[in-house]
Simulated assay, not measured.
Amino acid sequence: MRVGLLTREFPPDVYGGAGVHVEFLARELRPLVDLEVHCWGEASQRERGHGVVRHRPWSALDGANDALRTFSVDLAMVAALEGRELVHSHTWYANLAGHLAKTLYGVPHVLTAHSLEPLRPWKAEQLGGGYALSSWAERTAVESADAVIAVSAAMRQDILDCYPALDAARVHVVHNGIDTELYRPDPATDALRRVGLDPARPYVLFVGRITRQKGVPQLLRAVRDIDPAAQVVLCAGAPDTPEIDREFRELHEELSRVRDGVHWIPKMLPRPEVVQLLTHAAVFVCPSVYEPLGIVNLEAMACGTPVVASRVGGIPEVVVDGETGLLVDADADFEAGLTRALDRVLADPVAARRMGEAGRARAVGEFGWDAIARRTAALYADVLGQA
């Protein structure tokens, strides 16, 4: 089975959950299918021989709207996909490539929805008129795909709500996964010392992009009032727009004036250092206002850390309220609810340890990438059998 996997992000250029998903899915799919990954980046002849083909936006579009530059990458991908029996696209950045390959070569198109453009209106800040183009590309690809994979049951319902013309029988739930060998408790603390953390004080940890989707402004306001003994660690970078970047910096400065122990890490840390930070955090916080699943919660759980997260999207399918962490309603009381939940975990280290152990067990037992790859390959076979 010759499969083309289409994505924007692929190592070493991974900055979000979709990129993490594709990285590990590709690794586990390789023994099961003849896999060729098409992604963004500078082309490498060596990688082409190892099943990775990188494409960059056309130089004639340098400085143009990002949606147009994305479409140029999609066209380059399509031209390189001849001979593949099935294509599988991830995110709107590659969906159009999947749709055009289906149309040009007459092969099935499987699409994994990691998020939905109609549910992210703030993307208009980032893309301007390009948001209309990204929305068009996603709708066209979703409604025409032979199969659509939702990363959670909540995401499946969102897909059907946003795209009612889509046949529900073509939408399948295959959860995101976690490598519990890479993400596991690490007793080392050298990464903490490099960041400047006080090992004698507990800390609240956030890891994510600076975007409205991740609820970063709400978090910065919520942690003002948590236990003053706790440190706050923000592994936050890649702002979507200058506006959200400026808002983050202003809120960070305000927070740093009213409490000590605030640490902002704006760069992407190597995975081993992130694992250390996750391991030793008193609590991990995920304040997303929209989240189809949230791989980062699985990463924290796999490291044995309790999670405080918003009760949105697919997060309740990962974080079991009162067992592996606490869920907070993303309503008018959201910020105060985050404060209360974080203080509750910080105040009871014994219960926090118990939730962390339960989270690790759940990550290992329910979300292994090997099983997810097998389910994905089985879906490929079903789709090819129906073609």
Rank of each mutant, 00 (worst) to 15 (best):
A361L: 13
S144G: 00
A238Q: 11
H99K: 13
R259K: 02
V296H: 05
L35S: 14
G196L: 10
G51C: 07
A79M: 11
R257P: 03
T376R: 06
A150V: 14
S152I: 13
A361N: 12
H50S: 07
V296L: 10
L119E: 13
C286M: 09
G304Q: 00
R84H: 13
L197W: 11
R224K: 14
C39R: 12
D186M: 03
G196T: 09
D321W: 05
P266V: 07
P31C: 12
V308D: 00
I372Y: 06
G322E: 05
A336S: 14
E82H: 14
D179T: 03
P287G: 06
A229M: 06
L327G: 07
L5R: 11
R344L: 04
E23Q: 15
G83M: 02
L379Q: 06
V142S: 01
R120V: 04
T91Y: 11
V262W: 04
R84Q: 15
M155Y: 02
V37M: 10
G325M: 13
D179K: 01
V345R: 07
D158V: 05
L255E: 03
R69T: 00
A236H: 02
V53D: 02
V364R: 13
R46A: 15
A60P: 00
G359R: 11
V151S: 05
A302R: 04
Y203C: 09
L160I: 12
G196C: 11
R84A: 15
E117D: 08
D227T: 10
F334K: 05
F284G: 12
L197R: 13
Q213R: 08
G17V: 14
N297H: 10
A168H: 01
E138P: 00
M268R: 15
A67Y: 11
A352V: 05
G196D: 10
A381N: 04
R360A: 14
R344M: 01
T376G: 09
A378S: 14
T103N: 04
G17H: 14
R48V: 14
L100A: 13
P272L: 04
L35F: 12
G215R: 09
D225E: 12
H88Y: 11
W92H: 15
C39S: 15
D382K: 12
